[in-house]
Every structure is written in structure tokens, then in C-alpha cells.
């Protein structure tokens, strides 16, 4: 049964490419005004899900609905989509391309042009309105691409790896723009491999594995579902090789060690002290999404 507040409803979605079954009965919903993270290793079916949702791939079985109906390009006026494989008309100047996309989204030419000028100024591209896109740097092209995505104040933003190709400064700029839309009430669906962004921005997440939902819910729900709590320690010395001390994150003087269900941290701490490890600082917390990600996908996530 569809939640009345659902902007996106995916039910029992199956997708195949020849003999390869990419999605196997996937179901989830995205609610109005929330930021939703679609997570998974490469090839887990995230992009295919979005493409099916946006009608780029025909669905073999099941439903992928936006506002209760199958996607139609006429709905594109209020949807901003930043695909994983992205580009614009490279041989054309920035402003005419942005204006064109604004018009395709239903904006009058003058409004689209005015909005584009304002956006270019905001992202530090003022004066490059007449520059051909292929003469811009990769990061600058990404900014133009993002501008095209958020034109016409979309009510639904679908971002497939939005920070891919951005340096840290521009990543922050991009995320602040996304945050602005979130605060204005836009629904945001985001595919990303940046787990700290997911923890900071997303209300709910879906972890896809081999075309099925491995975990689905709010970030704390997923954290509770996976691994429970974690012991984080800063230490000097050598961690013992023990069946209970199995760090998922291990750096020079820092480690994250999952705690067995219901077990207190004191047991492991005592074991570490007995092994001669000097513990400078410790805390227990839920498992980070990155830990969960590593736990779910193992080595495949590094592909």
C-alpha cells in the first residue's frame, strides 16, 4: 500500500539485460520533503533503478511511479535530474545551453537566461556566459551541469553521484546548493559513495545489493539493523589478534571494533589492556554507514 505522502513509489521492480537480472523485486518509497540515499556497490542496480523511474529504461515487471504515475517528460519541468553519465552540448556556449534547458523545463527564455546569469555569478562563472562548454575546466562544466539540473526550482531532485569529479571546495559548494533546495522543501534522491554526506544529509537510505534491498529505513534504523554498536578507540601499541577484536576500520592509532549484540565494551577494553595496548580515548557508538557498507559489500565495494 502506497504511503499518501510518497513522491516516489517503487514496487516489485524487476529489470533484466539479457540473461543478467539487475533488479529483483525491488520496493521502496521516498516521502515528500525528505532526502533519500540510494546506496550500493558498483553494479548493484542504483543507476538502473533511477533510469527505470525516469522512463529511460522500460520496466520489465513491477512499478516505478512518481507522484502516483509513470514518468512522462512533461513532468520534467519540476524534476531536476543529474545523471551519472553527464555532459552538455560541448561545442556550444554556456548561456544558450542553459537557456535552452530552462525553456525545455517550461521557463520563458528571458527568465531562463536571467536565472542562468544569476546562477553563474553565484558559482563563480560570471563572465563565462559566452564561453564554449568544452573550453571550461571539468569542475566548471560540472557546475553548469548542476545549474541545468536545478533550474525551474525542481520539487524533486534526483542526483546520481553529484560530487563525482568535484574538488573539496566545489563539493562543499554543491552540497550547500543541495541543502538550500532541501530547506525549501524539495524531495531529494541521491546516489553517492560519500558516506559522511549520507549521514549528514539523508533522512532515510536504501542499501541495494544484487538488485534487492539489503537495508531500508532511517539512518539510525539501518545502523541498528547492522552491527549494533561500535567501540572507537585511539591507542598506542599493537592490537591483539583475537576473535573478539576484529576492527572494521584500522588506522595507525585509531580503530573501530564492532561490539557483539548486547555485549558491553568493558570486555574488549579489558582484553586490549591485558594485551598491553595503551588506550588514550574510547567511545561507543552506532556503526558508521561506512562500516555497514564495508560489512555488506566486503571487498566488492572496492571495485
Amino acid at each position: 500500500m502506497t504511503e499518501p505522502n510518497a513522491v516516489i513509489s517503487v514496487r516489485d521492480l524487476h529489470m533484466s539485460f539479457g540473461e543478467q537480472h539487475v533488479l529483483k523485486g525491488l520496493s521502496f518509497e521516498v516521502y515528500r520533503g525528505e532526502t533519500f540515499g540510494l546506496l550500493g556497490s558498483n553494479g548493484s542496480g542504483k543507476t538502473t533503478t533511477l533510469r527505470a523511474l525516469l522512463g529511460i529504461y522500460p520496466t520489465a515487471r513491477g512499478e516505478a511511479l512518481i507522484e502516483g504515475t509513470r514518468f512522462d517528460p512533461s513532468m520534467g519541468a519540476r524534476i531536476g535530474y543529474l545523471p551519472e553519465e553527464r555532459g552538455l552540448y560541448r561545442k556550444e556556449p554556456v548561456l544558450p545551453v542553459m537557456t535552452y534547458f530552462g525553456q525545455l523545463k517550461g521557463m520563458p527564455a528571458a527568465v531562463a537566461e536571467g536565472w542562468s546569469r544569476g546562477y553563474l555569478e553565484k558559482v563563480g562563472l560570471a563572465g563565462k556566459e559566452r564561453t564554449r562548454l568544452d573550453k571550461l575546466s571539468g569542475g566548471e562544466q560540472q557546475k553548469v551541469q548542476l545549474g541545468v539540473t536545478i533550474m525551474n526550482d525542481p520539487a524533486l531532485l534526483i542526483l546520481d553521484e553529484p560530487t563525482k569529479g568535484f574538488d573539496p571546495v566545489n563539493r562543499r559548494l554543491l552540497m550547500s546548493i543541495v541543502e538550500e533546495h532541501r530547506q525549501r522543501g524539495a524531495t531529494i534522491v541521491m546516489i553517492t559513495h560519500q558516506m559522511e554526506e549520507v549521514e549528514r544529509l539523508c533522512d532515510r537510505v536504501l542499501l541495494l545489493k544484487d538488485g534487492v534491498a539489503e537495508a531500508y529505513g532511517t539512518v539510525p534504523q539501518v545502523q541498528d539493523q547492522y552491527g549494533g554498536r561500535t567501540l572507537r578507540i585511539e591507542f598506542t601499541g599493537r592490537l591483539p589478534d583475537s576473535p573478539t577484536v576484529r576492527p572494521t576500520v584500522r588506522e595507525q592509532n585509531y580503530a573501530e571494533i564492532p561490539l557483539p549484540d548486547g555485549a558491553p565494551a568493558t570486555g574488549i577494553l579489558r582484553e586490549l589492556l591485558d594485551a598491553g595496548v595503551e588506550i588514550r580515548r574510547f567511545e561507543t557508538s552506532r556503526a558508521s554507514l561506512e562500516q555497514i557498507f564495508l560489512q555488506v559489500y566486503g571487498e566488492r565495494a572496492e571495485d
Binding site: 533510469r51 525516469l54 522512463g55 529511460i56 514518468f71 517528460p73 520534467g76 519541468a77 524534476i79 535530474y81 543529474l82 545523471p83 553519465e85 553527464r86 555532459g87 552538455l88 552540448y89 560541448r90 534547458f101 525545455l104 523545463k105 541545468v148 539540473t149
Partner: peptide, 13 residues
């Protein structure tokens, strides 16, 4: 070639 298809197909048939 310009990888613009996905964006444009969400605004026009």
C-alpha cells in the same frame, strides 16, 4: 557523444 541524452530525455519525448 555529448552524454546529454539522459538529461534531455527527462524533459522531452
Amino acid at each position: 557523444e555529448n552524454r546529454v541524452t539522459e538529461m534531455i530525455l527527462t524533459t522531452i519525448r
